[in-house]
């Protein structure tokens, strides 16, 4: 039972993380390979503040603000780059941030990580049991889903898709594509920060090892597999992939097999991705009017 609750909590957090990336990758066509950086910024900001005695609500808001602000500051130079080059710039940012976390020991305690992050305390309720934490992250996931669905259904969301489809054509109609991309990036960063905050207060320990490129790849996989540019795609993808990833850990296998499990899991991910790209490149859920495999 605890295992199921744990799975559900991780799925809710990753659903938020994937939904945030979907705004950028799915709706705006921005391939962000450093998305984990904003997850980390949210996690560290809230963890450091609450460890210093600040209430959870302040840590949460500061985590969102810090992620959004960093997203804004990164997006201005990075979005001047096109396509692949933008991807490389974000990849670089993700790695730089991890290096900072690893090396600025005075602030982040470096590789030692931050233990003992308090469980959230909101309106006098402490979310220190698994069911309570599930309720909290579930509510945040629903709110994220609702807000982002509202955003992408609005004229603003339509403009994002237009920018994704044809940037020049969007500019021709009087849209400033650059500004729309910045907004999309900031929205994505803020919600990645939210996922990070929830993650930090759930595991109660964070370290640089939690925020590697592997996490970005996992969340990209969730979005692409689930169906980018759709509401439900990232949620379905999070359920499928997290369930798969976490459940493998609890298989009862002979001890001599367990050392193979880690690499095997990566291989199965790779295989899944190849199979999906061949047979269903648009993901589990298909975007209406989306181009196949594009």
């Amino acid at each position: 039972m605890d295992l199921l609750l744990h799975l559900a909590i991780v799925i809710a957090i990753y659903a938020i993380f994937a939904l945030s990336l979907n705004v950028e990758v799915g709706y705006t066509g921005l391939f962000n390979f450093g998305h984990v950086a904003f997850f980390a910024i949210g996690a560290y900001t809230s963890a450091l503040l609450t460890l210093a005695g600040a209430p959870f609500s302040l840590g949460l808001l500061a985590g969102l603000a810090a992620a959004g602000l960093c997203g804004y500051l990164l997006s201005i130079p990075a979005l001047k780059l096109q396509g692949d080059y933008f991807g490389i710039a974000t990849l670089g940012f993700g790695e730089i941030l991890r290096m900072i976390v690893n090396n600025e020991v005075w602030l982040t305690k470096g590789p030692m990580g931050l233990p003992g992050i308090p469980r959230p305390d909101l309106f006098g309720v402490v979310f220190d049991t698994l069911p309570a934490y599930l309720a909290l992250s579930g509510v945040f996931a629903l709110v994220t889903f609702a807000i982002l669905a509202f955003v992408v259904l609005s004229p603003f969301g339509r403009a994002l898709k237009a920018v994704r489809d044809d940037e020049t054509a969007a500019e021709i109609l009087g849209k400033n594509a650059f500004r729309f991309k910045i907004k999309s990036f900031v929205i994505g960063s803020v919600f990645a920060g939210l996922a990070g905050v929830l993650w930090a207060h759930y595991t109660t320990f964070i370290g640089p090892g939690d925020f590697t490129l592997t996490e970005t790849i996992l969340v990209l996989l969730i979005v692409v597999m689930g169906g980018k540019g759709t509401f439900l795609g990232p949620v379905v993808g999070a359920v499928a992939l997290i369930f798969f990833q976490e459940s493998v850990r609890f298989l009862r296998l002979p001890p001599e097999w367990t050392r193979l499990l880690g690499p095997l899991q990566q291989m199965v991910f790779g295989l899944l991705l190849v199979v999906l790209m061949v047979f269903r490149p648009e993901g589990i859920i298909r975007e209406k009017g989306g181009r196949r495999g594009d």
Binding site: R158, K161, A162, D165, D166, T168, A169, G289
Partner: peptide, 17 residues
């Protein structure tokens, strides 16, 4: 230079922004 993933109506809406 139309937006392929948007409907005809949405394309027109983009023109009227």
């Amino acid at each position: 230079n139309v937006f392929p993933s948007l409907t005809v109506r949405e394309n027109l809406e983009m023109g009227g922004t």
